[in-house]
Design a protein around this nucleic acid. Structure first.
Lengths: 119, 119
DNA sequence: CGGTAATTTGCAATCGGGTTGCAATTGCGG
DNA sequence: CCGCAATTGCAACCCGATTGCAAATTACCG
């Protein structure tokens, strides 16, 4: 419950260590186990943005986890933040036969509006 | 040069530790530094497939690094291999204004043909 | 060639995120 | 209040990535 509350205080995505500082009465391992649990039950998106730390964010719509409705994520290389681009849906693509698709990650990297406006 | 030769012996993608065993006269750090160098000069794709280890593969066409022509990668959750789906091009998408796109990663996970045919 | 500077290498150490074993604590039904 | 199950904290560990540094190699200039 504490982990959930801490998660809800984040506007965008967050990492395990973000949660550690946000919910500082809890131990890293407890938070980790909660995250794992939530992710298994599809309450969380798990995002690998190549920053080294896995990012998470709360699923705000029920069907966000079905493949057809996956949206993409944007990782800012300047400030390191990662955003859910909720409105950008991943187009369906024709894959070579033989591959069984279970999950799609669409990650865009670059500079976010904030970092572009500064300098 | 030794690193380059070792890389060319891989059919698909490879990790740092793959190269370590392939080019066993070289130290991990030397290989790492070469990879970094190659990547900076866009001779390599760098692929994060969520397996924990960064994967690489040689760029086989000159323009593979321009955004419009990026292809996607497939990570098999059974055998752990990662493939370049050279023929699947990432479609151009309309992004929200304000984001500056520098790089796109399109990663599909699932089961590869090999692992599907076995059992 | 010789000699010095620049580069590259190997080794070991370190970092950091993730993960786990285990003992201590807490929750809860009876 | 007792006892069992679930949760938690702590510390240790794993593993890939990364770096500092000294030694070895290479490049280059006279």
């Amino acid at each position: 419950m504490l982990v959930l509350e801490a998660m809800e205080r984040f506007e965008h995505t967050f990492s395990l260590s973000d949660l550690e500082t946000e919910a500082d009465t809890l131990d890293k391992s407890s938070i980790f186990r909660s995250l794992t649990l939530f992710a298994e039950h599809h309450l969380l998106h798990v995002i690998e943005d190549g920053s080294g730390a896995t990012k998470y964010c709360l699923c705000h719509n029920d069907h966000a986890c079905r493949i057809e409705e996956l949206h993409c994520h944007f990782h800012c290389e300047v400030c390191g933040k990662t955003f859910c681009l909720d409105d950008v849906h991943i187009p369906v693509i024709h894959y070579p036969a033989g591959y069984e698709v279970r999950e799609i990650n669409y990650l865009v990297k670059g500079r976010c509006p904030d970092c572009r406006s500064k300098r």
